[in-house]
Nucleic acid binder design. Sequence first.
DNA 1: CCAGAATGCGAGCGACCGCTCGTGTTTGTC
DNA 2: GACAAACACGAGCGGTCGCTCGCATTCTGG
Lengths: 226, 226
Amino acid sequence: MPDNVPDGRGSGSQEKDQPRRRQARGERRIAQLLEAAATVFTTTGYTAASTNAIAREAGVSPGTLYQFFPNKEAIAIELGGRLMHEMRETYGEALAPVDPATPLEEAVGAAVDRFFAFNCEHPVFFALMHGPDIPGRITEEHDALHASLLSRIEGLLSSLLPDAPPADLTRTANMCLGLYKAGLELALAHEGAERDGYVQELKNVLVRYLEPLVGGRLGRAPGTGP
Amino acid sequence: MPDNVPDGRGSGSQEKDQPRRRQARGERRIAQLLEAAATVFTTTGYTAASTNAIAREAGVSPGTLYQFFPNKEAIAIELGGRLMHEMRETYGEALAPVDPATPLEEAVGAAVDRFFAFNCEHPVFFALMHGPDIPGRITEEHDALHASLLSRIEGLLSSLLPDAPPADLTRTANMCLGLYKAGLELALAHEGAERDGYVQELKNVLVRYLEPLVGGRLGRAPGTGP
DNA sequence: CCAGAATGCGAGCGACCGCTCGTGTTTGTC
DNA sequence: GACAAACACGAGCGGTCGCTCGCATTCTGG
């Protein structure tokens, strides 16, 4: 785990040889600031979020914030990095086992449930990934995660459709991810039972979309056949 | 058609009794400014777009811009209004005829094609509706269009599913719209044959999602049955 | 043809934002 | 306890942005 946050004060000479010795207090402040940033980013979006507001939310002064982060972008990058790390663990569990014996409905349902739980626990994730107002560097992180997710889905699909052209596989993976994001947005916009309803609909969409592709390759729940 | 744009100079006393007599030159400038705003909004988004940039794009001074629009928000509102007007005409054609004899695939395909053509002709539309960075008033217009679209889809669905609970109908309509937006985003991100491929996949998603709901109520293309 | 309205200009005002800097406080080390 | 490094503060700098104002120019009705 890359615990070394890029320094704020070291104005650009050394980067790797002087990792800026941190005290326990500093690490706590960093976590505190990232949590505050997550809150502000979630409510106002990245561009509209002011560093002063983040500092205020964290209960520190603007100067203190810049003790630990060289600029506003670095805050989002570090936050995105930690999120991606946790995400990798989550969807590692969610998408890794391509057990070809489980019914499609179960596989899709389990994957959606895991991803959805992650997005509920980390609302910033959606805000950072979905926002079209995000400048330069963060896009790289975004693209990295996107590509990573996509290749996972693609791999999963290729094990179900070994005889499909790669281009179709990529397109199908993109569709799945896009459909998930759409369903996620709808589900997050509702609460309680209604939310669960949208999650179920999302699963229906994905299952029905993929079912004709995998054909009879995967098992189907008994009683649903013609 | 509401041709009266809210005045810029009349600093807030009269609004309806003094519609600010316009010359032909003024109307031309307004159209010119809206076109420039559409360009800038499309490329940079609403919040990042500066009024000076819009004026520069239109080839006029900032002061001239504020002769016709009281503030930046009014530009987006007027633009959104005109877009909504044109949209209503388009999807009036796209969704109005609920001919219960046409196959589901044809109906969905035609609707998607019309909407997609509209979004290709007016890229601003997607930028204004999809951006999470849009302040206050515009959201009202957005919600109005959203609700309008939704009730149309809902009505269309209810004619196919007369015995479904209203709550399910609303949810299904929301899903359709969300799925369309997701597919639109993917299609717009590609070009040429790849774009067409995504459009086709979007149609597949919608048809397969709705097919089990409408059951055998609508006709199916010959040769696709079991 | 001319008075007044509509249109056009662009320097610049006030507000805010990202970020800095000088200074003061806390913490770890000997 | 002394010294340095890390931490904390907050006024404020430079810059941008939305928007204004005074004034010049063009159109239009009588």
